[in-house]
Structure formats: structure tokens, C-alpha cells
Design a protein around this nucleic acid. Sequence first.
DNA 1: ATTACTACCTGACAGC
DNA 2: TGCTGTCAGGTAGTAA
Length: 247
Amino acid sequence: MPELPEVETIVRGLAAALPGRRIVRVEGRDLAIEGRVIHAVRRHGKYIVLDLDGGMLAIHLRMTGKLMVDGLVTKWTRVVFHLDAGTLVFEDIRRFGTMTLLEDLPSNGPDALAVPEQEFVQMFRGRRGRIKPLLLNQRFVSGLGNIYTDESLFRAGIHPRAQAARLSRPRLRKLHAAIHDVLTEAIAAGGSSISDYVSATGDRGSFQVSHAVYGRAEKPCPRCGTLIRRIVLGQRGTHYCSTCQRV
DNA sequence: ATTACTACCTGACAGC
DNA sequence: TGCTGTCAGGTAGTAA
């Protein structure tokens, strides 16, 4: 479910409520963090990181995870953090989400929103394979998922099957700008809510109405009117405009 | 290094 | 109603 803009939106909501709160009791998972204080909340790729005294809790929402401040408890609630004031509720329909106490964060690639253009272009040296699966690889660049990969490639005019190593420097610079712009606009819109995603305050995002290709198979391209195609690439549904996007 | 396949788990939806 | 199959915003493990 959540990609970088959704995780960023959730983290902003958590950061407004959690720092300074003490975890009094954890219900639903054996984490042994009772009594610890949450000092800060940050994002690391698609991970939500709670900095506690003496460690950090890394939470990954995978497909259907939600983290809500004072959220309602439902049949899909998996963990409730009881705080000295209020609660933090973790809900996860498909139970793919993970929650681990760590000393070191998982090593992944540079953040898709923070990576400088020059570094981004250089990362492609020596890479084989097609561009879309590469962008989805979190050890290459972290934060992009299926929605924003498709949307970024559309804006950059790059076909998802294009060979990464064959892209010219100008096209890579354009891709860098496209990724940055799409993510920035999506964060401003509070993320994309297609079915499950809500922020830490329970609000839906609105960026889904701005999607040009994702989820728009057989609908006209907003730029040229050609019908958007859906193919499967790297086992993922992939949407693109065959006129605007070239290999 | 890259790709394919399986698996994790649940719900929505289409078609019969 | 209900069955079957497909799809879903993610990622790990294994094999080729």
C-alpha cells in the first residue's frame, strides 16, 4: 500500500503527536519496549522509524498496514501501543506488515526524494535490466513503489521496459526531475488513497485523482489521448502510454 | 546481477 | 447466494 509519499504523510502525522510520549504497554505483540519514551519519528525509505531511548522501532506497513494516533480498534487491529496519553493503533488486514526493534536500519539505496541528480545519474553505471524493476528495487533507490514508478516513467517519457543502461544522461536527468516532482506533489496531496491508505490522523490522500497512467488501463492518456496500456513486468502490473513513453 | 516463481494473507470484484 | 478465479500500493527466499 504505502509508498514514499504515503509513509511521509503518516510520519508527519506521527511526529506531531508522539515525541515525548512514553509507551506504557504494548498489546498484541511482544516487543519489550514498555516504559520507553518516543524521542522522534522519522522515515527511512518506506520504513517508519520510532526513535526510543536505547534503540529504534522500525515499522514497515507493506500492503495494508495503517498506523493511527488514537485510532479505532477493529477486527483488523494487530497492535495497540498504550501511551501515557492516548494510543497508537496498528491495523493490518493482510498481516504483511513488520515491526522490529533494531540497532541498525536496513541498508537500502538513497532516498528517492533526497538523492541529488548527479548521484542519481551515476547510479546507473554498470546496471543491466529494465528500468522499472530497477526503480522498484529498494537497494537501488528507496521509496518508490508501483504507483510512483509508473507515474515517474510517464512524466519522463520513458518506456518501463527500457534498458536502464541505455538511457542517456539527459533522459536520466529528466527521470530524476520527474521522480522528485511526482513525489513532492503527492506529498502535498497527502498521498494516494486507492483503497486502504489513510494517514496517521485517519485522512485519505487525494493524489490518486492526479494519476496519469497508474490504474488507468484502457483510458486515454492525459497528454495525447492514446489508450493507456497495462502489461505485466517483473510480476507487477505496469501502466504506460505507448505514444509518450519510448524505450 | 537479473529474472522468475512461490509465499505470506485478506478482501474486493467479475463472471457464472 | 455462493463458488472460482484474478487482482492488489510490498518484499523475502530460492532457483535458474
